[in-house]
């Protein structure tokens, strides 16, 4: 009895040690991972390394520093020639009109944490702001 009470206390303290934003980051990461698998991994691959010269990598790509651009590209797609990690790519990326703002926030969070240098999630407000004034990519 005492043992399980201690265990419970320990478990509680473990959770309370995590800040709210850390918890939210984990949540966004998990949701984002699932969305990534369904919507992005076909081309960009599960490891984010892209596919030969057909589809560009996300891992190590400079675009991850520009979250507003990432949000807009996920939503609206892009076309034209781009340079990623020193390699040229020129295939249109389709738009994803079905994705909601929260889903895009989860996706931006996931790719920024998994393939970029972020350790915390990207809030939905950032995405909303980005989507309100997207330019054409």
């Amino acid at each position: 009895m005492t043992k399980s009470a201690i265990a419970l206390l320990f478990l509680l303290s473990m959770f309370s040690c995590k800040s709210a934003s850390e918890l939210k980051s984990e949540q966004y990461f998990v949701e984002g991972y699932q969305l990534y698998t369904t919507n992005c991994a076909n081309c960009h691959q599960a490891d984010g390394k892209g596919m030969s010269n057909l589809y560009p990598p996300l891992a190590g790509s400079a675009i991850l520093n520009d979250k507003l651009a990432v949000a807009c590209i996920i939503k609206n797609g892009m076309k034209g020639t781009i340079l990623v990690n020193g390699k040229e790519f020129n295939r249109p990326m389709p738009a994803n009109p079905k994705l909601t703002e929260i889903e895009i926030a989860e996706l931006v969070s996931f790719v920024s944490m998994k393939f970029g240098k972020d350790s915390l999630y990207t809030p939905i407000e950032t995405v909303q702001k980005a989507l309100a004034s997207c330019k054409a990519y």
Binding site: N42, C43, Q45, M51, L54, Y55, R91, P92, P94
Partner: peptide, 13 residues
Amino acid sequence: FTTCPTICPIMKR
């Protein structure tokens, strides 16, 4: 088809 966003990339892989 080359612009296929769904299963073709997987098939080609």
